[in-house]
Write a protein that binds this DNA or RNA. Structure first.
Lengths: 134, 134
DNA sequence: ATACCTGCAAAGTCTTTGCAATCAA
DNA sequence: TTGATTGCAAAGACTTTGCAGGTAT
């Protein structure tokens, strides 16, 4: 299978290795590196694996992982739904309007020129590009 | 005040000139050209002007105006809230994470190079860039 | 006349919160 | 032990829907 050590993974993030978190970490980080999940999908997946976790706990964990820097919230896609991305580095997304699916676009696949100045005393904290597909 | 003719404005869009729509059209299109409104703000504004309109009707009208091409929904900003933009042409946004405020960025202020190909049989239907400010 | 529109309230979707019971360290 | 975490259910924020009554053309 995988030699992913969920316990030390959580440890390194400063998160307690509880049972739900171990299971969630394995689902999210064991194999693929570019997952885009919603809380609901994750809760369903856990249930499918015969290890149901309360939806509230799923949200707690996703937010904890986000604060710890292991996940990133994607804005601008599925309206009304938070999508969590296991790829935390700079990159952008295709959003398929038909299926709701997100696909990564490497950051260097898009060149931004003449990025405008941030107004007054503000700092640019991030830049999301979503290319919608139909 | 303004010489904005809400009745013919709606007419041109193929929308019936009902009382709520006339009021909404005036608020949105009479003066400024770059408004970003939420349904709730608009309902509050109508109430403030002593012409309350049911929230459901506000949503109906905003969606009708969007389908008619007079508004555009902005994605990727305020999570969980639909923002309607009176500026329908191509452009992008600053999103102030502190205030939730949206500001326009002219389309030509950003140059996209090497836009990636859309996958398989898909077409690019739009591109939203949101620059987050802190 | 008649199709469309409005308002109200109820229902829906997604997310967060409160709190007692449980668990990791 | 002891504070963090879980689960459940209830509450919240935002949006949509159903439908009876009203309205523009």
């Amino acid at each position: 299978m995988s030699d992913f050590d969920a316990a030390s993974f959580l440890d390194r993030l400063g998160l307690r290795a509880t049972r739900p978190r171990l299971r969630i970490a394995r689902i999210l980080f064991a194999d693929r590196q570019d997952r885009h999940v919603t809380a609901e999908w994750l809760a369903d997946e856990l249930a499918r694996q015969q290890h149901p976790v309360a939806l509230a706990t799923v949200y707690n964990t996703l937010h904890a992982l986000t604060e710890a820097g292991a996940l990133r919230e994607v804005r601008g896609a599925s309206p009304g739904t938070i999508v969590f991305d296991t790829h935390t580095g700079p990159h952008h997304h295709f959003y398929d309007e038909t299926t709701g699916e997100l696909t990564d676009i490497p950051a260097d696949a898009i060149t931004l020129q003449d990025l405008p100045q941030a107004p007054d005393g503000k700092t640019i904290s991030g830049c999301d590009i979503v290319i919608r597909l139909r």
